[in-house]
Computed example of a mutant assay.
Amino acid sequence: MGVTADLNMRKGIKVVLNPPQEFFDDFQEWISETERWNYRHAEYKLWSIAFEKFWLYMAIDEETEDVISVVSLALQRDSEGKKLYSLGNYYCVPEWRGKGISNKLFVQVMKHVGNENCTLFGAVEMSALYAKRFNFSLMNEFWHNFADIDVPNLVIPVIPNGFTCKKIEDKDWEKLHEYDETICDLDRRKYMRTNLSLAGTVSRLVINETGKIVGFGAVKMAFAGELIMAPLYAESLDAATALMSSILKAVPNISSFNSLITIYPDANNDVPRLLSILSSNNFHSHKAFRHQFTKEMMYFPQHKIFGTDEVSHSPC
């Protein structure tokens, strides 16, 4: 475990770059309890191997070896090779807040960004601060909502006529990547294949009557008994319904989970309709996050996004 420069931290605090898994697990315990941010166990490994570059900075109490604060940064490129940095996992345990530790980690990762474009999902209460202090001032007009369905209220719908869902096989990846490139102009073939194949994931693609891919998606079996609909991309409400029907049927021991969540752009009016189908209109949602960029906005076809991939390092 490599200890970085002290970053002017107070005595007794060390800053570690890309620490071992057990420190990420400690972090997961904290963010699950206080923020309800839940990941698959292998999420850290995914970020480490699937992005062009990845940094996870942790401030750690030297005496107890407890995690105090975290921030991460990933580097991706668009189809023309232009860099896009993404910042995520910005967190401090409650008892250490207000002491400037997290701010120093944030400043450190922004040194890697330099003058390049960077994006993050700003939480409602933090959005204005990110814009003012760190120049994440380019924002979508709409927000992303957090939606929650209790598993006992889940309804697995009938697949609408005209659609077929299937597991993703080796022969399907090229067409899936081509479809994904209509959603997101980032070179994320390695990331998406690893992501959809990761342990604790049920993924499917949906095909229409002509044999054309019209969507794909996954449900992630995450920490604290959470099922996460991420990503879910589809051409229509019926295609999204077909995907969720097929995916939910394949989730093992689904009744052992507590809830199904998704984070989605409120610009897509079909998402509440899908959630209503999946829950007999028994779901909860609230405004949660907003895209924020430093240099240049990236635009995505929001009407196709029923569930964002995740809010740490995926802009769509």
Rank of each mutant, 00 (worst) to 15 (best):
L260N: 05
W143T: 03
D180A: 12
A224S: 10
N161V: 04
C92V: 08
L105Q: 08
L84V: 02
S32I: 03
G215E: 07
L105A: 06
L274T: 02
M58R: 11
H286Q: 14
Q28Y: 04
D266I: 05
F216A: 03
S102K: 03
K83M: 11
F163V: 01
I183P: 00
V107S: 07
D309A: 14
K287L: 13
A218R: 11
F223R: 15
A199H: 12
T294H: 08
M58V: 02
V107D: 13
K132G: 03
P231R: 15
P272D: 11
L138F: 03
R36K: 15
G211Y: 03
L129V: 04
P94N: 09
N89V: 00
V124S: 07
R36V: 03
N117R: 13
M126L: 15
I149N: 08
H41F: 07
H286N: 06
R273D: 06
L186N: 09
L232I: 02
I261E: 06
G215S: 06
E181D: 10
D238H: 06
A288S: 13
A74W: 07
V206F: 02
C118G: 10
M221F: 05
M297Y: 00
A42W: 05
I305W: 10
N153K: 12
Q292R: 15
V3S: 11
I13H: 09
I159Q: 04
Q108D: 10
R40K: 15
H291E: 09
Y91G: 00
N18S: 06
Q76K: 15
V151Q: 11
I13Q: 11
R40Q: 12
R133Q: 13
E310C: 04
Q76N: 14
F216W: 15
G122M: 15
M110D: 08
K82A: 09
I156M: 06
F289D: 03
A250R: 06
V219H: 07
N282C: 05
L176S: 08
D270G: 01
K220I: 00
T210F: 05
G200E: 08
V206N: 02
N115S: 10
G12S: 08
V219T: 04
S279R: 08
T194C: 10
F163E: 08
K82P: 00
K104G: 01
K175C: 03
G215C: 07
L84I: 04
E125W: 08
V158M: 11
A288Q: 13
V155M: 06
S203Q: 02
L56Q: 09
S314M: 14
Y179I: 05
K287G: 01
L243M: 10
V71F: 08
L56I: 01
L260K: 12
Q28H: 05
I149G: 02
E52A: 02
E80I: 00
E226Q: 14
E43M: 15
E29R: 14
K132H: 14
L278K: 11
L275W: 12
T34N: 09
Y91A: 11
I207S: 02
D26W: 00
S72W: 07
R36T: 01
D78L: 06
L196G: 05
W173C: 08
M1R: 13
S276W: 09
P94V: 04
D309I: 11
D180Y: 10
L198H: 07
E209W: 02
I149T: 03
A74H: 09
L87V: 11
I277T: 06
